[in-house]
């Protein structure tokens, strides 16, 4: 499964829930799959999608917050797993699309294939699901309706040959519509 296919499966299941998506191709895939006001496209500040998602999750405990992250992104902010794991927000679902490369910058390796991000998340007290197939992704998304801890879903994805278009909304607009959407959703 490639990232776009994984994003499509997730979006089909979670519909209108809140998503904070990491910079690069991840936000672009989300933008072209399920464009909506409650998507926060983080177009800069690489590494911080999980932190922004944590901030939202702590302030909106009754809503589920999805973070769309990459292996390169989380490796830049591994401390985030420690902070989330200590605070234990039950409404945070951290999804990592792992292709072991920095695809947005030309496919350079990230080293995520030499270590196991899932194990780091496990010892940081996440409930972890490591996924390789479309079918298991669909099943897990059904299963996580009432979590007892933050969830991390690591999806192994293949390199994608199709590039989704850039996010065409200006950052201030991404912010203002996200604020309104999560306030009344």
């Amino acid at each position: 499964m490639n990232r776009k296919e994984a994003v499509e499966i997730i979006c089909k299941q979670i519909q209108n829930e809140i998503i904070v998506s990491a910079n690069g191709f991840i936000s672009r895939d989300l933008f072209s799959t399920l464009e909506k006001d409650s998507n926060f496209y983080m177009i800069g500040s690489m590494g911080l999608a999980s932190s922004i998602g944590l901030g939202v999750a702590l302030k909106k405990p009754k809503k589920r917050i999805f973070v769309f992250d990459g292996d390169g992104n989380i490796l830049m902010n591994l401390g985030s797993l420690v902070t989330i794991g200590s605070l234990q927000p039950k409404n945070l679902v951290h999804i990592i699309f792992d292709n072991s490369i920095h695809e947005s910058t030309g496919g350079q390796p990230t080293n995520s294939n030499h270590i196991d991000i899932s194990e780091i998340a496990k010892v940081s007290n996440f409930k972890v699901y490591s996924i390789k197939t479309k079918k298991s992704l669909e099943q897990i998304l059904q299963k996580i309706k009432k979590p007892k801890s933050p969830i991390l879903i690591k999806i192994q994805i293949s390199k994608n040959n199709i590039k989704s278009p850039r996010v065409k909304i200006i950052p201030e607009k991404i912010k203002s519509r996200f604020i309104s959407a999560i306030d009344c959703s």
Binding site: V20, I52, L54
Partner: peptide, 14 residues
């Protein structure tokens, strides 16, 4: 920078 990310998320919740 992690703190800035978290504070940003909180600020987005007013």
């Amino acid at each position: 920078d992690e703190a800035i990310g978290i504070a940003t998320g909180m600020t987005l919740c007013k």
